[in-house]
Amino acid sequence: MRVLSRILPHPLLSLILAVVWCLLVNSLSLGTVVLSLILAVLIPLLTEAYWPDRPDPPRLGRLTLYVLLVIWDIALANIAVAWIVLTRPNAKMRSRWVVIPLDLKTPEAIAILAGTITLTPGTVSADLSNGGSCLLVHALDTGDAEDEAKGIKQRYERRLKEIFE
């Protein structure tokens, strides 16, 4: 086990490197796979010194489910925003700032939450408070800021907490 973690200091990074190399070459021939494995072992070893405190690995199964949920939400909610943009006059849009207090502490989890909020239409994450305790979000058309914040916490933050903490 120790030998394995010596050879593969970042298993997740190695996996991503191998997959990205195969995608770039766009083939799954033996040569490509072998070269991708060589790169997947070499690059993490050579760059290990630049990653002093590496985060704990997330729960991969739940992360995959989360990504699928987000993709589904992106597709559905984009249609809603397209409808708002095309049909609703500017004066009638109730756009406002929403402040979301954060329960998450890990920087990676907060970054993913901010990205999710931006990609799910109707909201763009604009800024983080200087102590990292809340997130500033701009909503395009929302009736109640409290409800919006509660919805986001319930749907995304709870899941991210399970994945990262």
């Binding site: 406002r96 200087n130 990292g132 305790s133 809340c134 500033l136």
Partner: peptide, 17 residues
């Protein structure tokens, strides 16, 4: 942008800090 509400837990938003 519109004026921002103050952050509840901290002293300022990161951009203004």
């Amino acid at each position: 942008a519109d004026p921002t509400p103050p952050p509840p837990g901290d002293s300022a938003w990161a951009t203004f800090d």
